[in-house]
Design a protein around this nucleic acid. Structure first.
Length: 547
DNA sequence: TCGGAAAGCGCC
DNA sequence: AAAGGGCGCTTTCCGA
């Protein structure tokens, strides 16, 4: 059963109940003050709520203490289905569902009037989407993908609502330890001291180290043969200015990105409330909007401390992308290597390569399209040991080079290519050599993108299914009737890693739930494929202690 | 003066 | 320590 929610344009909401075939069975007009209670009441029947954007409808419900089990985020699903190659037979109207989601309103600030676009009828769009899936080449995977994307949107809103426990005084202590004391209008003391060493060593008393152009000129004046100021290039240079400069650059990064201003802007009342953007990356990965939630540097993770009597259970899917590739390509040799907790060690034990770093860089090179260095050198051996896996990503790369689209396991489809190589083939000598080279470079670059797309995107699908399964289990672990934040709940997500905030006594069963959910995600996506999705799980008080 | 591009680096 | 796909964020730079 579905219940579609639609703003009536005057602050109220119309709820349309639909049966399994999508036929209307009831219609209710709700005043703003009645909405949350009505939804909580109907939630007992566990309908699938259908709404334009979870980011807009769900935060006020969470603020009112209402958690829902299932939904369809029509805008996220439209984006998937419109571009999916499997639904290419569907003609989509050029309408508001293709527009980006309206900016999420702050939690608690009820639906604002001007945002309700009356032309976007959720009932009609639901019918269109269900018909498109039913008529597609693969209804099962697309139905799973849209459900997974939608549950991801619920998780994202719930994690924003919960906020990540953050001890500002611990963060401050970490900053003082590394950067020195803050100085108003100037650099912190330790950074300033390091900068002094750099200026002395280069004999450049007014050098601004934050300007790459100025810095590279100063280094060249000092006789250093560098063309950029990237750390990995400077590491190979022997000069007394380099060690303090590298240290300064590291600290400057921390100071600007996650220093005291970040703390003041993003942490309030002991919580960091990042805004996640499900599906914000073309591959289906999440992005973050503000606060840099997906790039929290390890240096500050010591400030993430569980509430008294609570713990974090942190789980990381070990070598997720190689395992996903093994499952997609049905590469049994690679699946066998993945029987080990550590897939890379499994590759060594199977005799494919000699050392774990060789396995790691060889595998990443296969997935990313690396040709240089260690990953390039390992390529022939990976190809010999795992022919089906390599053939799978090679096929994706070639398709991209030809300007074709590729798709993930569940059917998310890559953006259209630029057909660079086709242009070269069809140009028949009318292009200059330079133009041909440029076109070939572009084509190969796009091929690396499509090669990675199929693996990264499928890994993102696995992660969504993992979180969806976990979310349901966590809810059932809590006391019936208890609000979301009094039960074990998801609190952080990082592509292949999740963190649960839980009462200490429940941590062991949360660990079990994490593992069961990983196995469930594997079965959902790949059925009986003999691929294991190993987790490394840790129960900790501080995020920094998780690995 | 302002906005976008580039450089650089954090995360996976 | 390596190579290279995807992002966000900050500062600097440069041209309209």
């Amino acid at each position: 059963m579905f219940i579609a929610l639609r703003s009536d344009g005057r602050g109220g909401t119309t709820a349309v109940s639909l049966d399994a075939d999508g036929a209307e069975t009831a219609r209710t007009d709700l005043a703003p003050d009645d909405l949350a209670a009505w939804i909580a009441e109907r939630e007992r029947e566990r309908p699938r709520w259908v709404w334009s954007d979870t980011s807009r409808w769900y935060p006020p419900l969470l603020a009112a203490g209402v958690r829902v089990e299932r939904c369809i985020d029509l805008r996220l699903c439209r984006r998937i289905l419109r571009h999916a190659i499997a639904t290419s037979g569907t003609v989509w109207p050029d309408d508001g569902w293709d527009r980006p989601a309206p900016a999420p309103t702050a939690a608690g600030a009820l639906f604002d009037l001007e945002e309700s676009s009356s032309d976007d009828d959720p009932v009609a769009e639901l019918a269109r989407q269900r018909a498109a899936i039913a008529a597609s080449a693969e209804p099962g995977p697309l139905a799973l993908l849209t459900a997974a994307e939608s549950v991801g949107s619920l998780v994202a809103a719930e994690m924003t609502f919960a906020g990540l426990p953050w001890r500002a005084e611990v963060h401050d202590a970490i900053l003082r330890e590394l950067l020195g004391d803050p100085v108003p209008g100037a650099r912190p003391t330790r950074m300033e001291a390091l900068l002094g060493e750099v200026r002395t060593a280069l004999d450049e008393p007014t050098l601004n180290p934050d300007s790459p152009a100025e810095l590279v000129k100063a280094l060249q004046r000092a006789g250093l043969r560098v063309t950029t100021t990237r750390s990995w290039e400077l590491k190979n240079v022997d000069h007394p200015a380099i060690p303090p400069l590298l240290e300064y650059k590291k600290l400057a990064r921390l100071y600007t990105a996650n220093g005291w201003s970040w703390l003041a802007e993003w942490v309030h009342d002991g919580r960091f409330h990042p805004v996640y953007v499900p599906g914000g990356v073309v591959t289906g990965r999440w992005a973050a909007d503000g606060g840099g939630a997906l790039q929290l540097p390890k240096q500050v993770r010591g400030a993430v401390v569980a509430d008294p009597g609570w713990r974090f259970v942190v789980a990381d899917a070990a070598q997720l992308e190689p395992r996903v590739l093994a499952a997609m390509s049905r590469d049994t040799a690679m699946a066998r290597a993945g029987q080990a907790q550590d897939l890379y060690q499994g590759m060594v034990d199977a005799g494919a390569v000699e050392t774990r770093p060789q396995a790691k860089y060889g595998m990443l090179g296969a997935i990313y399209g690396g040709t240089q260095g260690e990953s390039g050198r390992m390529r022939p051996r990976i190809e010999r040991a795992f022919p089906r896996a390599m053939a799978y990503v090679e096929a994706a790369a070639r398709a991209g080079e030809r300007g074709e689209v590729v798709r993930t396991w569940l059917g998310r489809t890559s953006p259209p290519g630029r057909q660079a190589l086709q242009q070269v083939d069809g140009a028949d000598g009318t292009l200059s050599d330079a133009e041909v080279r440029r076109a070939q470079t572009d084509a190969r670059s796009w091929g690396r993108f499509t090669r990675n797309f199929v693996v990264q995107g499928t890994a993102a699908e696995w992660a969504l299914c993992w979180m969806g399964a976990l979310r349901r289990r966590l809810w059932e672990l809590g006391d019936p009737g208890a609000p979301l934040l009094a039960r074990p709940h998801l609190i952080f997500f990082l592509h292949d890693e999740v963190m649960v905030h839980t009462p200490e006594g429940l941590a062991p069963i949360v660990e079990t739930a994490l593992r069961e959910s990983a196995a469930e995600a594997g079965r959902l996506l790949f059925g009986g494929a003999p691929v294991e999705f190993a987790l490394s799980v840790a129960t900790v008080e501080r995020y920094a202690d998780a690995r």
